[in-house]
């Protein structure tokens, strides 16, 4: 008798478990976001209160709402798009030039031992020069217009991409190359069908860190002389004693920097879905 009772209640119990599971799954997705937002929200609230009560003087650290108002103001009069647009444009062009140059040089140096012996020592020597040290020279050569800024950014992007391409090519599994040779692939086919796909993860890592450096260098490039752009806003804020402009610029940098990295991250996961990577728990 007891047994049959147990069987009867078993069905609804199962359904309840399923329901609990979906709730648990939703909870799992939302929880980290909530957990991660606690500290920022608390900090911003404390900051707002301290600024409103005058403990932080407004000429040094304006309230978050004041910064938002500044950004909103720029949005209203349209200058927001000019500044964000020109900065993004500079990073994009510099990033493109740097990446393409690194791809060409990196592939040649990676594939041909003679080219490595010829070029690599020179490139490594250049790498040990802090890239910002080039700034005065570039200004001297190209003036303070766009070319010197874009060149700066391209130089910054070049090295991480270059190093990762070379590392990626050098790290291709010899065993896979042997499979290609067993099927009679010539060098060009070997590069296209085995070496490039195998080196792709490392290349994408380089591209992502290259982009990060691109954002860093655009600040330097715009600080040294620009009439528009987010870096120009930093200088403007400093010269007009307006910390809210500086903070607005910093926040905008953070937002578009994160946004572009996120785009690359999506491209990376799309193209590298075959990787047997670690899944974080």
């Amino acid at each position: 008798m007891e047994k049959s009772v147990g069987q009867l209640t078993a069905v609804p119990a199962n359904e309840r478990i399923d329901e609990k599971k979906t709730i648990a799954r939703r909870k799992k997705r939302v929880q980290p976001i909530m957990l991660g937002s606690i500290l920022p929200i608390v900090l911003i609230a404390v900051w707002e209160v301290l600024s409103r009560t005058g403990i932080f003087p407004a000429y040094q650290l304006p309230a978050p709402t004041a910064i938002l108002a500044t950004i909103n103001g720029m949005f209203q009069d349209g200058t927001l798009f000019t500044h964000v647009g020109i900065t993004t444009y500079r990073v994009f062009i510099g990033f493109l030039i740097g990446t393409v140059a690194a791809m060409v040089v990196g592939s040649i140096v990676g594939f041909y031992e003679k080219a490595e012996q010829l070029f690599d020592p020179l490139i490594q020597a250049f790498r040990s020069i802090p890239s910002l040290a080039w700034v005065p020279l570039f200004i001297l050569w190209m003036g303070i217009g766009e070319p010197s800024k874009v060149t700066m950014i391209a130089v910054g992007v070049f090295f991480p991409v270059y190093l990762n391409i070379i590392g990626g090519i050098a790290g291709v599994d010899r065993k896979l190359i042997e499979v290609g040779r067993m099927y009679g692939l010539n060098n060009l086919q070997l590069i296209r069908r085995v070496i490039l796909p195998a080196a792709l993860p490392s290349f994408l890592t380089g591209v992502r860190s290259g982009l990060g450096l691109g954002w860093m260098f655009v600040v330097a490039a715009e600080l040294m002389g620009a009439s528009s752009g987010l870096g120009y806003l930093l200088v403007l804020g400093q010269n007009t004693l307006s910390p809210e402009i500086i903070l607005s610029s910093i926040i905008l940098f953070a937002i578009i920097g994160k946004l572009t990295d996120w785009i690359l991250k999506i491209i990376e996961t799309r193209t590298l879905h075959w990787q047997d990577g670690m899944v974080k728990s």
Partner: peptide, 19 residues
């Protein structure tokens, strides 16, 4: 070979038809 040595970026069918 001793190990499978499949190309990790290709599907099983693409690996088989590799050569």
């Amino acid at each position: 070979f001793q190990e499978p040595r499949l190309m990790p970026w290709l599907t099983v069918l693409e690996n088989v038809t590799f050569g």
